[in-house]
């Protein structure tokens, strides 16, 4: 499962000046109430809590104050080969900056090492405009990747920053859910009964939400039921997998005590009614997996609508 999004960050006055400086290959520090210069500039002074207003240029060389070796870089770090993260006190600053130092091995790193900025090939108004630092006197390293951060504003002030956040997760289902999805792979809809309240849950649950105990006794449910309530989705949105307009409805399978959301097709949206009897339309068997999407959608059975009293407690 992936959680990927490019966040658009507005910067406010202090960060805007700092990022604009980076775009123009200048590093600015903020002057704090005690006269110290901090890089990056904080938006608010730690002692007076007032906005930091005065920014001053600092040098593009500095001294390593501490460092750690990154033997196994993770995605999107400044370098994809082993490097050091370091706190670097730039000339003219009193508070150090966190950034990467490109050296071949930990043996080449030491506290007190003088390092200088290596700018990215293209600067865009982001902290990654500093590709990394390299020891003073060392040759520049070839930048490993072009920055995806920053804005595309090449003139005037940089006021926004695009920050991609891309994360991958392994997604697992509970044992009860797993049974349900394995059942679907065989064309079966499996529910389970709560041993305490005896309600039939579909999908089965790791905890009956009323009793706090796992549902147990397995029950195979028919793929037919009553549409309790619904909406017609007319609005497109990012990440949507079904093209609107479509009907999203709660389907209460016969014998189940809880409905679940699914798609209704095979009927004009304007004809869909509460209480309508519907049945599952399965995808061709060779397209089945362990997913509820094995059921392409539900469509009307043609039976008379269910009496309101039979489903009103499910609204």
């Amino acid at each position: 499962m992936r959680v990927d999004f490019d966040y658009t960050r507005s910067l406010g006055p202090v960060l805007s000046q700092f990022m604009t400086g980076l775009r123009d290959r200048r590093i600015l520090g903020g002057v704090l109430s005690d006269g110290q210069v901090a890089v990056p500039p904080p938006e608010y002074d730690g002692s007076t809590h007032q906005p930091v207003t005065e920014l001053v240029p600092v040098g593009d060389e500095g001294v390593v104050q501490t460092w750690a070796w990154v033997s196994e870089p993770v995605d999107d770090q400044p370098l994809s080969v082993p490097f050091a993260f370091a706190l670097i006190l730039l000339d003219g600053a009193d508070v150090p900056l966190l950034h990467a130092v490109a050296v071949d091995s930990p043996a080449a790193m030491e506290t007190g090492l003088r390092v200088k900025v290596q700018w990215a090939a293209e600067t865009r108004g982001a902290i990654t405009d500093i590709a990394c630092f390299v020891p003073v006197g060392a040759s520049e390293v070839v930048s490993t990747s072009s920055s995806t951060e920053g804005s595309s504003i090449t003139e005037g002030a940089v006021t926004t920053l695009i920050t991609p956040v891309n994360l991958a997760y392994d997604y697992a289902a509970s044992p009860e859910e797993s049974k349900f999805f394995r059942g679907l792979a065989e064309g079966k809809i499996l529910g389970q009964r709560c041993p305490k309240c005896e309600k039939v849950y579909v999908p089965p649950r790791g905890a009956c939400p009323v009793d706090g105990v796992p549902t147990t006794d397995e029950i195979e449910l028919p793929d037919k039921g009553t549409l309790t309530t619904f909406c017609i989705v007319n609005v497109p949105f990012l990440g949507q997998k079904i093209v609107p307009p479509y009907v999203s409805a709660y389907v209460l399978l016969d014998g189940a005590d809880i409905g679940f959301l699914h798609l209704i097709l095979g009927v004009d949206a304007a004809e869909v009614r509460m209480g309508m009897r519907v049945k599952a339309v399965w995808k061709p068997r060779d397209e089945w997996g362990t997913t509820i999407e094995n059921i392409s959608h539900f469509e009307p059975t043609g039976e008379p609508d269910a009496d309101y009293d039979t489903y009103k407690q499910h609204l």
Binding site: L15, V74, F85, L161
Partner: peptide, 14 residues
């Protein structure tokens, strides 16, 4: 999120 996260400093390095 403005001046640190884009460098993805990992917990162990810090």
């Amino acid at each position: 999120p403005y001046t640190m996260t884009p460098l993805w400093p990992d917990t162990v390095s810090i």
